[in-house]
């Protein structure tokens, strides 16, 4: 570190500097401290056996695991609470499991099983998605606008499904949206998702809706955050650098996107949008209702 004092000339200054708590040595100590979190390959959880680690998020480590009860072959992804979890960790994890259990959609990775290890470490087994992040998938396959729009529509379908169950994902970003080998989008990681009633800004039963419909199905208007919007815009913008669109056009585009049936020529209608001087990158929040229609 450039601003670190020379430890020989000014040892106390060195100890006081960033070197101590933000340096590599401390990070290495932290990694060692975390080693106990890891489940070694071969660890048995319910009917599954850990094969290898896939990655570590802020809260839990994700493993590839294999069914190991002699019934049938199945590869799954297992997410396990770290060792010595705080009560908040456990609470969040149980919540995530419950949320996953209420979701059932082809574009959302399915919950398969769950349990608790000795010592209170809860785990869940999910459908293992073999694929790439949505942005990497679009790049490596050189997808055109039409294909990218198709991916975004699948993301919207997944998000809409969650919203119909009054759930907000709250962390939609390319690394949480995988595209499997068959080109199917899978939305992952409801680790920080929440129920809508936890959020202040929700209007149930928008005005002007028929009472009969109100009675059968609560319709919800959500201010969607906006990372999903930005994420999509980034994905599409690659094909579309010449279009410099404004807020209104952005909303219009999303409306078209949501109402267009797959296969129709959305690229042409979107391209014909008039231009203004506000860039896509500032795409604000967009609204749509739980029936999937963007307003």
């Amino acid at each position: 570190m450039a601003d670190t004092p020379d430890p020989h000339a000014d040892p106390l200054g060195w100890l006081e500097s960033r070197a101590l708590w933000q340096g590599s040595l401390f990070r290495s100590l932290m990694q060692e401290a975390r080693a106990g979190d890891r489940l070694p390959p071969g660890t048995r959880l319910g009917s599954f056996r850990i094969v290898e680690e896939l990655g570590a998020g802020g809260m839990a480590v994700v493993y590839r695991a294999q069914r190991d009860d002699g019934q049938f072959d199945q590869a799954v992804a297992i997410k396990c609470v770290p060792a010595n979890p705080s009560t908040r960790d456990i609470e969040l994890f149980h919540r995530e499991r419950q949320i996953q259990a209420t979701l059932n959609h082809p574009n959302i990775a399915r919950l398969l099983d769950g349990g608790t290890l000795d010592g209170g470490r809860a785990w869940l087994a999910m459908e293992l998605v073999e694929g790439q992040h949505i942005d990497a998938h679009a790049e490596t396959n050189g997808l055109d606008l039409q294909a990218r729009v198709g991916l975004v529509q699948q993301v919207i379908a997944a998000v809409a499904h969650a919203h119909q169950r009054l759930l907000l994902h709250r962390d939609i970003k390319p690394s949480n949206v995988l595209v499997d080998t068959e080109g199917r989008v899978k939305l992952l990681d409801f680790g920080i998702a929440g129920w809508i009633d936890e959020s202040a800004q929700v209007r149930l039963f928008p005005v002007g809706q028929a009472p009969s419909r109100r009675a059968t199905k609560p319709s919800v208007r959500l201010p969607i955050s906006i990372r999903s919007g930005c994420c999509s815009v980034a994905l599409l913008n690659r094909c579309w650098p010449q279009v410099d669109n404004g807020l209104a056009n952005c909303a219009r585009f999303w409306r078209r996107l949501a109402t267009t049936t797959p296969g129709s020529d959305i690229t042409r209608s979107a391209n014909s949008a008039p231009t203004s001087n506000v860039g896509w990158s500032v795409c604000p929040c967009w609204r749509y209702a739980a029936d999937g229609v963007i307003r």
Binding site: W21, Q22, F26, R27, L29, M30, Q31, A33, R34, G36, D37, G57, G58, M59, P82, A83, N84, S86
Partner: peptide, 23 residues
């Protein structure tokens, strides 16, 4: 103390709290 370090290790490594550890 080590138990508490283990507890915060996840947060520190994940870069939460702008990666600043506070002893």
């Amino acid at each position: 103390i080590y138990d508490d370090l283990k507890r915060v290790a996840r947060g520190v490594l994940a870069g939460r709290g702008s990666a600043t550890f506070n002893p």
